[in-house]
Design a protein around this nucleic acid. Sequence first.
DNA 1: CGGCCCGTTGATTACTGTCAACGTGGGTGG
DNA 2: CCACCCACGTTGACAGTAATCAACGGGCCG
Lengths: 234, 234
Amino acid sequence: MPYIPIQNAWNGEADCRNCSLRGSVLFAGLERGDFDLIHQPIHDIAVPVQGRVYRVGEPGERVFTLRNGIVKLVQYLPDGSQRIVRLLQSTDVFGLEALLGHSYQHDAIALTAAELCAIPCEVVSRLSREQPALHTELLRRWQQALAEADSWLTELATGTARARVARLLLRLSAGREEPFRLLGREDIGAMLGLTPETVSRTIAELRRQGCLHELRSNVFTVDEPALRQIADGA
Amino acid sequence: MPYIPIQNAWNGEADCRNCSLRGSVLFAGLERGDFDLIHQPIHDIAVPVQGRVYRVGEPGERVFTLRNGIVKLVQYLPDGSQRIVRLLQSTDVFGLEALLGHSYQHDAIALTAAELCAIPCEVVSRLSREQPALHTELLRRWQQALAEADSWLTELATGTARARVARLLLRLSAGREEPFRLLGREDIGAMLGLTPETVSRTIAELRRQGCLHELRSNVFTVDEPALRQIADGA
DNA sequence: CGGCCCGTTGATTACTGTCAACGTGGGTGG
DNA sequence: CCACCCACGTTGACAGTAATCAACGGGCCG
């Protein structure tokens, strides 16, 4: 369970002007000149599978943008059980609480190898003071996270195991036609509030019913309409 | 299930300068002069029990501050089942999505008689442009809602019915020594993802075990340490 | 090649949902 | 003002679902 110190995994200073993700990223609205205001390095970081970006309670000094890969945000209960409260993918921003001087409220752990930008809070604070566009973008990001949290609760914590698994599969396959690699059973369980065994059984059942086809080991395609029926309680 | 048009329940224009809640409210950081920038009326609204403040999908034109009472935010699944995703109390702000031009994402329904301020988005947008203090306060509110949503999921959607009910009771009694009126069994169920029957049984059991004392009908005091043990999975 | 982690499956138990009946308090209408 | 009715909480019996404990097999890494 390696904690990846930022320095060790450092790839080099990001060149935001030429960022391949500009347009969908936090700094989307900025002009070329605005980047001159950045006086602290923005790091481009590689995180291995299972690498921890930050830990709950750690003082928050940076905000992160995910460039590729999947990251989970995890919270824990006193009895040690864990719950995944959000899943992040490309262009998502996380660790926003750092901007308010708070410590991080989750463990952020990479589910796949991931690449991300670490932006010092000071940079964001300063730019957002001078650039209303960035400020609005921040609000939008916050609201997006909140909406995601609410629908996560409504969709993934309500109903039978079958319905919840179906809804999760729909989310994960979201639109794309291609097959996709499914997460580990334990992680799925932590998202849905189920045990790994129940998840495994449920997936097996969906596969037998033809809602789900396993191409290679743990790589699936979905029958979206069929899954949606189950998701909506059929 | 009356929808309460704002005009019908109008109490009069709020006088924010002399607001009894200033200090804890959204406009806390403003100076006296700032209020001169308000050119649209802020309404003080009374909402009866079960009154709907706004409806999911309705175009969002106002942000609300709860002065007293309890309001629930509800989301629905395609099969009609509902889930309460947040509970609001005095000084809480809701409907923030309106500031981004979004329609409301929940039904907001009063669980008790409630009194609240309805602030036109335009007022908040304008003030926040001129007043960094308000801007920061907005970010804080957003983050607070997000943190609440995350802990809601972790605490109230994880573990057995007993543990979840216990955690909810601890939240509702939160600190205060005095007895408090419990919500309806159906609402509790909608918060925890349980049926009203299971909630009723669980509460009866906690009462038999002495963790919970019913003074009057549906008015309780709690044995906090005992409840916390159960909440933490004992 | 061996061990280990992970997913799968079975058997059993515990828990929660469902359906139904009953009592009570509050509100309505006569 | 009283009677009635309805909504809500409670409880019981039962069915269905998920958790638990245990065993097994396959793939991957050392």
